[in-house]
């Protein structure tokens, strides 16, 4: 009961803060929050792979890019294509990419997996640059209309309105992240955790390790694709450097490392830190690399594992101290 109340309070606070934000912050900072939500969804989708199969992808931009390009090309070529189908199709396209690659990816682990995903990511990047008739090359696809969200009989919401788009993004991202959260609680999700810990045993139990891994690739790809689609809707331009560059793959890795490895909410915290930091840098300094570089070094040396662990460590120490004090009082 206690836990339920705590969760309820947390949700109410979250909804109140998230709901009020655009009215307090103004358009520019609201847009930063949009970016944060999208990036958090992207980082969590990568974390799904890392935490629940133990492999780190260096090419997650591939799925992000597939999602973004699907949305941009659909809206560019098909007049009046509706919003939600565009979003879902983008996710499905990226998920499909995950399924197609999975027979090759499931064979390897560790560094080899990282390198193989890096190779596929770079291959996709270069192919997109080469097929400029379709993708527009470096200039990318631009000038497509962002469709409104039509809820039949209720309303038609204009997605060009920053506040409306913010609410839309937050809803999509929260749903996406929650689905991934509940996934880790389902029997299938538990099997997946088993794969990470001891894939042989799971195999003996009768589950098919490779098939299960393939599902994870598809799911992770799906949500990365959704994040990419949101990026396309938000930016109005999708270019190869913007969605498929190798740094697009590295950025969510950094979010996971800074936020907290091996936790579900760490990547979200990490996304927040990185996005807010970038905004601060843009405003106050030209030494972007120095600030970012020092942050990475400091995190690794003094907050190993990420800020979530620092927080949990503090909480644990606090509890221990309280326990000790209460014991002293008793004594």
């Amino acid at each position: 009961m206690n836990k339920f109340v705590r969760n309820l309070i947390m949700w109410v606070v979250f909804l109140a803060v998230a709901g009020a934000a655009p009215h307090v912050l103004g358009i520019v900072k609201t847009n930063v929050l949009v970016e944060l939500a999208t990036f958090a969804l992207f980082a969590v989708s990568l974390n799904l792979l890392l935490s629940f199969t133990g492999v780190l992808s260096f090419g997650h931009a591939l799925f992000y890019g597939v999602g973004a390009y699907t949305t941009a090309l659909l809206l560019y070529h098909v007049e009046g294509f509706p919003l939600i189908p565009a979003l879902l199709l983008s996710g499905l396209a990226a998920g499909l990419a995950g399924l197609i690659l999975s027979p090759l990816l499931v064979r390897v682990t560790g560094t080899a997996f990282a390198m193989l995903t890096l190779a596929f990511g770079q291959l996709m990047y270069i192919l997109c640059l080469k097929f400029r008739e379709v993708t527009g090359g470096e200039d990318g696809v631009a000038g497509y209309d962002i469709p409104p969200l039509n809820i039949p009989g209720v309303a038609s919401l204009d997605m060009l309105d920053s506040t409306v788009f913010y609410y839309f993004t937050v809803v999509v991202c929260v749903i996406g992240i929650m689905i991934m959260w509940f996934f880790t609680k389902t029997p299938l999700g538990q099997v997946v955790v088993g794969i990470r810990d001891n894939s042989l045993r799971v195999d003996y139990l009768g589950y098919r390790v490779r098939h299960t891994k393939a599902i994870i690739f598809a799911l992770s790809g799906f949500f990365a694709g959704i994040a990419g689609s949101l990026f396309a809707l938000f930016q109005g331009v999708v270019s190869t450097d913007g969605v498929l560059h190798v740094m697009v793959s590295f950025y969510p890795i950094m979010a996971i490392l800074i936020g907290g490895i091996g936790t579900f909410f760490g990547p979200i915290l990490g996304s927040g830190i990185l996005i807010v930091l970038e905004d601060m840098i843009m405003r106050y300094t030209e030494r972007a690399e120095l600030v970012t570089g020092l942050l990475f070094i400091i995190v690794v040396l003094y907050v190993p594992g990420g800020f979530v662990w620092l927080w949990m460590g503090l909480v644990a120490r606090f509890k221990a101290r309280k326990l000790r004090m209460s014991k002293e009082v008793e004594a």
Binding site: L290, G293, F296
Partner: peptide, 15 residues
């Protein structure tokens, strides 16, 4: 593991 090296060496490259 790799993850620490990755973050550190990327940080060093930026600095």
């Amino acid at each position: 593991g790799h993850i620490g090296d990755l973050l550190l060496t990327l940080g060093i490259a930026l600095v």
